[in-house]
Amino acid sequence: MTKAQFDDLIHAPVRLRICGLLRQVEQMDFAVLRDTLDVSDATLSKHLKTLAEAGYVSLSKAASVSRSDARRLTWISLTPAGRNAFGAHLRALQEIAGITDYTQSPGRRD
């Protein structure tokens, strides 16, 4: 079981939501993440940069046949360190919220 550890870097609202969505998947396209969070490209890029610098997310580019210009699809995923940090942060939130039965927590998945 992951030990609870509050992470100030993750807890910024948009970054918390980014990690929450990425935790559910192996990889997600930048555009899908942006549309789900309903934020601008610049805002999402800024927060992804912060998470990437902390080693919590990784970004990879892939060619897109549906685009005529040079832009590429950007796939984003949580790194193992990011997954662990987010899991520990979730536990900290659950403890703060007083949720002792983790199976009933809305943030729980594993």
């Binding site: 870097l9 910024a12 939501r17 969505l21 703060i96």
Partner: peptide
């Protein structure tokens, strides 16, 4: 957006968890 400073209250933590479910 400003980075979060300090720990959230139990209500704020519960709201954050609910928001993750909504996402």
């Amino acid at each position: 957006e400003n980075d979060f400073e300090g720990r959230p209250s139990s209500e704020e933590a519960a709201a954050s968890l609910r928001d993750l479910g909504a996402d």
